[in-house]
Design a protein around this nucleic acid. Structure first.
Length: 900
RNA sequence: GGGCGAAUAGCUCAGCCUGGUUCAGAGCGCCUGCCUUACAAGCAGGAAGUCGGGGGUUCGAAUCCCUCUUCGCCCACCA
């Protein structure tokens, strides 16, 4: 036992768990002690969990709360198991969102970033990145997740740009980087190219315009084409039909006159055209449609760009349309077509439209010069890793999604016409006629060919071009740092499915290409947190839940538990965003329950010295046995990333077994204050609490740590954070003790139910007669008779050796026990014989029903022949038990005499 | 157009992969009774489910197969 003053402290704990000061203090202490910042590079078992970029412009929302919590839970468990776990927070992705904020700010002053100039603009973004970054890190800390902003800041800055250049040069040397003039997705609002992944397609009902194009020549023939984007016709440089379409065989090689423009355009044959759709004739606009571009390439049609960077019509179109926005231009073109008699018809047409994933502007397919990465060679090994099973996804269905994307991979547009980001390490010679292009790791001074001046490509790289290097660039790559040696490859990636392609798939490719090894082996995709209407939480809907608010009100442990238990592997979870208490009550109540259990138990815990000798009672053996089983479940659940099961098992064991039954059974002995039985209880309490506090610690670190420190022999130093992870002996499994306590629980439960049935005041002491008790119940009664009496509010338990528990005709309440035996409670004044008869008859027919089912099963030859022997045995045992119960019920019915 | 997921108590969901110990579970809510000295953020008891519809496989289906319905997601170049 601890000394008197410690005992004093333990009993002085307040009856409510108050997380407010406690959680923050513990957290700061852990950070100060460096527990979350592994510097040592000589780790034998490096384990790294990667953290996706926090979106620094939005308040940290519950989605991130879930994601970060899962990561923190897994990391904490690994630390307890003796691994070195390193958090590597954030990437420069955060900065791109920040750039948008800065642009918005500048606009408020009626200016654009061009007024500010490139350098000043980049400085502004950095200021905001620092502000937001620090804020996010603080928020993460508040909810119990650790982060290191300095490290993140470094990776955003020098760290990544070195890696980015290295990668660019290497890919270029391998011939995987090329510059090309292609159709890309262009966001007119952001003024930049977007990758395919950045263009989100959404369904939309547009209008399909059918337009007549006259053929050139004297015969007055014309064809009809259909388009959802009439304004692009201004850039048409051809028409196409299917080569085997007999209707139009004559047209191939002829020319048509483009309405409104008057340009003469050729009609070509291309098998891309679907003869079944519309008229079977397609207008070809190579500069504004990816397919048309391909057709144009095949047939050598001119690609005529008709728009400016801002998606207004440029000088390539007839005068009246110049300068019009694309939407305006569409109206105008349709009007003019109508006026000119070219518009054959307009109909509704559902199709999908690409939008910029950052600003939701409709993207414009547009021809431009961009840098690309050839992806197929990189995808091959990444695909192979999945096929061989080296790379695993949880839930595994995402593996198929990954595979499908990899198999159909397309080249990646990596250049962006933005100012904030890593500059493309390419320089062009300004000397006339030289044309030298330099791709270099270090900034070159002069043109190596002609010694002329050089100019760097103005574009920057896609943010994901640095993100995909994240698993090694953050560790110092391309240098051979100690961190890199220790922490690459990592182990588990926890992230959301929506960046599976943006980030996860590309990290795999980069890891294999540049490090020759997978960056991680397990990818855990967490679900999305939705509001109570099932909608995604978003800023515009204002339906988000601020985790910080939740933490302030209910504590980080409460939030963590609620999120983890509510989030089965990979599935979405709904949270009531309008009633936070309802949403987080389960977690809060659980934390409080644990706290109070500790208040009861702490003053009685045996210390290490006295734990061994005491001889355990059935109850002590039972709770150890239950803990042993729970530990196996919880371990297995963690290993399979089924965190909700781990949380559920902790809850069921701690609340349902430890608090509801073990503590109640132990009270009798705890009250004694000394002696062998008291010591035994103290030892069992200490053993089991040590176990479950550790098992629960990854999920609820604060309350478990706070309690752990008050255990005897523990000080203020962290006792759980660095482990060890509890090893609960298998030998604690004890079926004899389990049977005994289960029988005891049944007896107590049955008496309570009868009491409730007859509306007896819970304080009225009753006498209960037990007949035909099986060995399990007899053992339990022998040892825990006093506890049973207290738990069921009994004044006496009478054992009846033979026959039914109730004498014939004696008024009282009857019940049978599944563990064997039956009970009788004499209740002279309250009992209604008719009611009792009816109740027993009900029960009896219910049992008879079950018995019938079981008998039928056993009579079925197919069952007996085919079912596994243990299943048949189980049914036979059930039969015996049911027959016993039914027999006793019938006896009871007899003893009550005939109904009036 | 392809692919995937979901449908179980009033609500949020487990269970399904590996069919038979679950006489279908949990939390919240609801009903009844208790301020019993760890906890009313609690305790005890209770009501509540044709496991979306239909068909099939099997001795046996919430669980496996087919199909339909209703939601949701992802991918996709049909103008």
């Amino acid at each position: 036992m601890g000394d008197a003053s410690t005992d004093q402290n333990r009993t002085e704990l307040p009856p409510r768990y108050d997380p407010s000061g406690l959680e923050g203090d513990l957290y700061r202490e852990w950070v100060d002690a460096g527990l979350f910042h592994v510097e040592a590079a000589d780790a034998d078992n490096p384990y790294v969990i990667v953290i996706p970029p926090p979106n620094v412009t939005a308040a940290l929302h519950m989605g991130h709360g879930l994601n970060n919590t899962i990561q923190d839970v897994l990391t904490r468990r690994r630390r307890m198991q003796g691994y070195d776990a390193l958090y590597l927070p954030g990437t420069d992705h955060a900065g791109i969102a920040t750039q948008n904020v800065v642009e918005r700010e500048i606009r408020k002053d009626g200016k654009t970033r061009f007024d500010l100039g490139r350098e000043a603009f980049v400085d502004r973004v950095w200021e905001w990145v620092d502000v937001y970054g620090n804020r996010i890190i603080e928020q993460l800390r508040t909810i119990g997740c650790s982060c290191d902003w300095e490290r993140t800041r470094f990776t955003l800055d020098e760290g990544l740009s070195r890696a980015v250049r290295e990668v660019f040069v290497r890919l270029h040397e391998r011939g995987l980087i090329y510059r090309g003039r292609y159709i890309i997705n262009w966001c007119p609002r952001c003024g930049t190219a977007l990758s395919n992944e950045e263009a989100e397609h959404r369904d939309h009902t547009g209008k399909l315009h059918r337009i007549r194009y006259d053929l050139e020549g004297e015969d007055g023939l014309s064809v009809e084409v259909a388009t959802t984007r009439p304004e692009t016709m201004l850039g048409d440089t051809g028409l196409a039909v299917h080569p085997e379409d007999e209707r139009y065989a004559d047209l191939i090689g002829r020319t048509a006159i483009l309405p409104l423009v008057g340009r003469v355009i050729p009609i070509v044959a291309d098998s891309y055209v679907d003869p079944e759709f519309g008229s079977g004739v397609v207008k070809v606009t190579p500069a504004h449609d990816p397919n048309d571009f391909e057709i144009g390439q095949r047939h050598d049609l001119e690609a005529l760009d008709v728009m400016t960077d801002e998606a207004t019509m440029n000088d390539a179109v007839p005068e009246p349309y110049r300068g019009l926005d694309r939407v305006e231009a569409r109206k105008r073109v349709v009007e003019d077509l109508q006026t000119g008699g070219y518009l054959v018809g307009v109909e509704e047409h559902p199709h999908s439209v690409g939008r910029c994933y950052r600003c939701d502007t409709i993207v414009e397919p547009r021809l431009s010069d961009q840098w690309f990465v050839k992806m197929a060679p990189l995808a091959e090994p990444a695909l192979e890793a999945y096929r061989k099973g080296d790379l695993r996804f949880y839930p595994d269905r995402y593996g198929k999604v990954y595979q499908n994307w990899m198999e159909n991979i397309r080249d990646w547009v990596i250049s962006r016409q933005l100012w904030w980001g890593h500059r493309i390490p390419v320089w062009y010679c300004r000397h006339e006629g030289c044309g030298e292009v330099v791709v270099a790791r270090e900034d070159p001074d002069r043109c190596p060919a002609c010694d002329g001046e050089l100019e760097q490509d103005p574009d920057v790289l896609d943010t994901w071009f640095s993100s995909w290097l994240w698993p090694f660039s953050t560790l110092g790559w391309p240098e051979d740092t100690e961190d890199l040696a220790a922490f690459y490859p990592t182990d588990t990636l926890v992230t959301a499915p929506d960046i599976l392609f943006f980030w996860v798939a590309r990290m795999v490719m980069a890891g294999l290409e540049f490090k020759g090894e997978l960056p991680f082996t397990d990818v855990l995709l967490n679900g999305t947190v939705r509001d109570h209407q099932g909608r995604r939480m978003s800023k515009s809907l204002n339906n988000g839940i601020d985790p910080i608010e939740v933490v302030d009100m209910y504590g980080a442990d409460a939030m963590r538990f609620t999120l983890i238990r509510g989030a089965p592997l990979g599935t979405d979870q709904q949270l009531n965003n309008e009633d936070l208490e309802e949403a987080f009550r389960p977690g809060r109540n659980f934390a409080n329950k644990i706290w109070n259990a500790a208040r009861l138990a702490l003053p009685h815990l045996a210390d290490d010295a006295t734990r061994g000798g005491a001889s355990a009672t059935l109850a002590d053996r039972w709770i150890r046995s239950r803990l042993s089983r729970a530990a196996v479940e919880i371990d297995g659940a963690f290993e399979a990333f089924r965190l909700h099961e781990a949380a559920e098992s902790c809850h069921a064991f701690i609340w349902g077994d430890f608090c509801d039954w073990y503590l109640e059974l132990a009270k009798r002995r705890l009250d004694e204050g000394s002696g062998p039985e008291y010591e035994a209880a103290g030892a069992a309490l200490a053993d089991t609490m040590e176990g479950w506090l550790g098992l629960l610690h990854p999920i609820m670190p604060f309350v478990t740590e706070a309690i752990s420190r008050r255990m005897p022999g523990r000080g203020d130093d962290s006792t759980l954070v660095l482990g060890p992870w509890p090893q609960v002996p298998d030998a604690w499994v004890d079926t004899e003790a389990e049977d005994a306590i289960e029988a005891l629980r049944e007896l107590v439960g049955t008496v309570r139910a009868l009491r409730s049935e007859y509306r007896l005041d819970p304080r009225t002491p009753l006498t209960v007669r037990v007949a035909g008790a099986g060995p399990a119940l007899r053992a339990a009664l022998e040892e825990e008779r006093a506890s049973v009496m207290r738990l069921a509010s009994l004044s006496a338990i009478e054992d009846v050796a033979e026959g039914p528990a109730g004498a014939a005709g004696e008024p009282g309440a009857h019940a049978v026990l599944r563990y064997g035996g039956d009970i009788f409670i004499p209740l002279a004044d309250v009992i209604d014989l008719d009611r009792e008869r009816a109740r027993i008859a009900d029960e009896s027919s219910h049992i008879a029903g079950l018995l019938g089912g079981t008998r039928a099963k056993l009579a079925n030859e197919g069952f007996v022949a085919n079912a596994p022997p243990e299943v048949v045995e189980r049914e036979k045992a059930k039969l015996v038990s049911l027959e016993d119960q039914l027999g006793r019920l019938e006896e009871k019915l007899q003893s009550l005499g005939p109904a009036d």
